[in-house]
């Protein structure tokens, strides 16, 4: 079983996990992974895209957009018609 680097996974998920939680999560996730390790051998199964699953495409026709007020209504912070985030250094 691969060791789960909970801290790394948390970073990838943009979650903060302190050390005691990390241990807790680690154990739980390892249990779940152990359950997963029991999956059968599926090497004979080739997953192919199914053409019968064909998607209907949308016609290229303009529809209404949202009013800006509606769009920004739920924003934790907005200014000058925009959403505001902490300064990003590019």
């Amino acid at each position: 079983m691969p060791g789960i680097d909970v801290k790394k996974i948390a970073r990838l998920s943009r979650l903060l996990i302190d050390n005691s939680e990390a241990e807790h999560f680690q154990r739980e996730m390892e249990n779940i992974i152990a359950m997963v390790e029991r999956l059968p051998d599926t090497s004979d199964i080739v997953l192919r895209l199914n053409p019968e699953d064909k998607m209907e495409l949308r016609a290229d026709k303009t529809g209404p957009s949202l009013k800006r007020d509606e769009l920004l209504k739920n924003a934790p912070q907005s200014e000058a018609g925009c959403f505001v985030v902490p300064k990003v250094v590019e």
Binding site: L12, S13, L15, L16, I33, V36, P86, K87
Partner: peptide, 30 residues
């Protein structure tokens, strides 16, 4: 929060419950 990433991490960590976090992390892992 200190910066953008800190804002992301704190908002998500304070906003989600344990079961949700557990599944998000399991999903990111797999």
């Amino acid at each position: 929060f200190e910066n953008l990433i800190d804002m992301y991490e704190r908002s998500r960590s304070e906003g989600f419950g344990d079961e949700v976090k557990r599944r998000i992390m399991l999903g990111a892992f797999v």
